[in-house]
């Protein structure tokens, strides 16, 4: 039998999305700077850039789904690409968060005289780690357990059960984000209240942002699972979402221990 191609690779078609994504990113950064400084039209350029970026993300990922699920270009060797890509992306995210932990530790281990030589800084009333943060601590890992349940369901070919498990994962994620939102709403300090507020909201804020991205990723996986896109032989998108989710999970544990707990007493 002669196959449709004599190699296992995916030779991609020319695509406008790399350049449209680049232009969107350029408009977003330039527009963002203009918006935050006294320039006219900054908000307009920023919005245009964000719309461009979101549109590019949608159509680019739509094309990847067409090429993989509907056209069968993602052979075993092709699947290695997005796998390594996801892992390296998560490694870069680890470094991103490492910097925030460094900043927080730098300022808290030897508190400067400007903040009273103590941590939390003089005059800052912190959140009690044993209230909402402690309640959130089992919620996010439970969501991580639920995504593992979904993974086992996919590997066992139990398609419906995988959808239920993903729904459970996403619901726990939403509960976590809801609690974080409540906590932010009633926090007694803001991002501009000393180095404590800055490091606290930078680290937990970026974590929350990543939780929201991970939740969207999992929702997409749930929809694709419902549509029958994911098989037990081929579910790279789901695996990437699960890795990402575990990463977000681990970051929370470090946030709880070092920023909420250690940094709050």
């Amino acid at each position: 039998m002669i196959e449709s191609q004599r190699h296992s690779y995916h030779l991609v078609d020319p695509s406008p999305w790399p350049i449209s994504g680049s232009l969107g990113a350029l408009a977003t950064t330039v527009g963002g700077v203009m918006y935050m400084h006294p320039f006219q039209g900054g908000a307009r350029l920023l919005s245009l850039g964000l719309i461009f970026l979101l549109y590019t993300m949608f159509v680019w990922w739509r094309d990847v789904l067409r090429e993989s699920t509907l056209e069968g270009h993602h052979t075993k060797v092709v699947q290695l690409g997005p796998r390594y890509g996801s892992i390296l992306f998560i490694v870069s995210e680890v470094m991103f968060f490492f910097a925030f932990f460094w900043a927080s530790s730098h300022s808290s281990l030897a508190p400067a005289v400007e903040i009273g030589g103590i941590w939390p800084p003089k005059g800052i009333g912190v959140l009690d780690p044993w209230e909402i943060p402690f309640l959130n601590t089992p919620i996010l890992p439970s969501s991580g357990a639920a995504v593992t349940w979904a993974h086992h369901a996919i590997l066992a070919g139990k398609e419906k059960r995988a959808v239920y498990a993903l729904v459970a994962t996403v619901l726990l994620a939403l509960v976590f984000t809801g609690f974080q939102g409540m906590e932010y709403y009633q926090a007694p300090f803001t991002i501009s209240d000393s180095i404590y507020g800055s490091t606290f909201f930078l680290a937990t804020g970026f974590h929350g942002f990543h939780v929201i991205i991970g939740t969207l990723f999992l929702i997409i996986c749930g929809i694709r699972q419902y549509l029958g896109h994911l098989t037990k032989e081929h579910h790279v998108g789901f695996e990437a979402a699960a890795w990402y989710w575990h990463f977000v999970d681990v970051v929370w544990l470090f946030l709880f221990v070092s920023i909420y707990w250690w940094g709050g007493i």
Partner: peptide
């Protein structure tokens, strides 16, 4: 045979 199409299907077959 799992659900697949194109060259991926040929590989799985």
């Amino acid at each position: 045979m799992p659900i697949a199409t194109g060259h991926e299907k040929e590989e799985l077959e």
